[in-house]
Structures are given as structure tokens and as C-alpha cells.
């Protein structure tokens, strides 16, 4: 019961302070899920993101369901998801019901521009950490660089890139095993 409450409240906080899409949630996930509650490792979060890219639904929601399921089974998956969507439900309905020109208010626009800068700082720190942990040899650097160029400059579908990267990872691991077998 305590775990379910912790899942709900942690994902509520993450939903409440994430502006934008699934990747912008990464710094919050690192703090709450990895450092504070030890519900997942950095590698596991990367795996969930990759799966979230090729499965239907919103990535932030998929990641919440994944972590929740891992911690407390199906109830955990449901509770974590409810946690991450709760702030949206409350905030959007208040704004839709009461403030007709919310996104045009000067204070809102100024605050959002400031928040964008904060997201830059947090994402910058997060991506450096991930790079140091995840890109350790030449093959993984090549996959990293190709994925970046293809998604940023060439706008190639992420689903396709995930499939190619997965196949490349598999091929590399088979080659490595063969090499290990020959040496032994």
C-alpha cells in the first residue's frame, strides 16, 4: 500500500513539473525514479524509452506504466499512470473552465521562456550523464552518432531507427561472442 502511494505521489510530482514531451521528463525521472526510490537503473530507463518509441501511446505515460509494473505489478502500472496524468487533469480543467486566454497572458509567456532555459540546463546535464554511461566504445559511438544525425538532420522515423539500432546491437553481440569463442 505504501509503495503504491509512493508510486502515485512520485509520478504526480514528475507530471506536475514536466513541460513538453517525454524526453523533458528525463531529469525528473533521474531524480525520483533512479536516485531517490531506486525503482530502475539508468540502463532500464533507456530501454523503456526505446520501447516507448515503438509502442503506441505517449512516451511519458508508457515509462510510468513500465516503472510502476516493475515495482508493483499491474496495480503498480495503473497507479503510476494515474499519478502522471492527475496534474494534467486538474490543471487543464481549471484553465479551460476559468481562464479563457491563458496562453496569451504576458506573465505566463515570460515564465515559460524562463522554464525553457531551465529545461536546457536539466537536459544538458542529463544527456552528458547518459553519454558517459551509455557510449563507451567505438560501435556504440557510431550508433549514437548515426541516431543523432538521422533524427535531427534527416527526420527519419524514430520507429525505423529503433529497429535498425536494435538489429545492429544484436549483430554486434553475435560478432563479439564469435570472437570470444575463437579466443577460448
Amino acid at each position: 500500500m505504501k509503495t503504491l502511494w509512493e508510486l502515485y505521489s512520485a509520478w504526480f510530482r514528475m507530471g506536475m513539473f514536466t513541460f513538453g514531451g517525454g524526453y523533458a521528463m528525463l531529469p525528473m525521472i533521474q531524480k525520483e525514479v533512479i536516485e531517490k526510490h531506486h525503482w530502475a537503473t539508468e540502463d532500464e530507463i533507456m530501454d523503456y524509452y526505446a520501447i516507448g518509441q515503438v509502442t503506441p501511446g505517449i512516451i511519458a505515460v508508457n515509462t510510468a506504466t513500465f516503472v510502476g509494473y516493475d515495482v508493483a505489478g499491474i496495480p503498480g502500472g495503473i497507479i503510476a499512470t494515474l499519478g502522471v496524468i492527475s496534474p494534467s487533469l486538474v490543471i487543464i480543467m481549471i484553465i479551460a473552465g476559468l481562464i479563457s486566454n491563458f496562453s496569451e497572458l504576458a506573465a505566463v509567456q515570460h515564465a515559460l521562456k524562463g522554464i525553457q532555459v531551465a529545461v536546457c540546463v536539466l537536459m544538458f546535464t542529463a544527456v552528458i550523464g547518459l553519454y558517459r554511461k551509455g557510449v563507451k566504445n567505438v560501435p556504440s559511438f557510431i550508433i549514437f552518432a548515426v541516431a543523432f544525425v538521422c533524427s535531427y538532420f534527416l527526420n527519419i522515423s524514430t520507429v525505423l531507427l529503433v529497429i535498425i539500432a536494435g538489429a545492429a546491437g544484436y549483430a554486434l553481440s553475435v560478432m563479439k561472442q564469435k570472437k570470444g569463442g575463437n579466443n577460448a
Binding site: G20, G21, Y23, A24, L26, D43, M46, D47, Y49, A50, Q53, K113, Q116, V117, V119, C120, M123, F124, A126, V127, L130, Y131, G134, V135, S140, F141, I143, F144, A145, V146, A147, F148, V149, S151, Y152, T158, L161, V162, A165, G166, A167, A168, G169, Y170, A171, L172, S173, V174
Partner: peptide
């Protein structure tokens, strides 16, 4: 495990791509 060893650096690349977009927009 082999498949995921390829996916992790790719996800890192996707995130960098998101970071570059938001840098250009915000700064």
C-alpha cells in the same frame, strides 16, 4: 541483451537531438 545494447546509445542520440532543438529555440 544484444538488442538493448544497440538501443541505449541510439536513445542517447535521440535525446541529444531533442536537446539541440530546445537549445536553438530557447537560447
Amino acid at each position: 541483451q544484444g538488442v538493448f545494447s544497440g538501443l541505449r546509445p541510439a536513445v542517447c542520440g535521440f535525446i541529444l537531438s531533442a536537446v539541440v532543438s530546445i537549445f536553438l529555440m530557447a537560447l
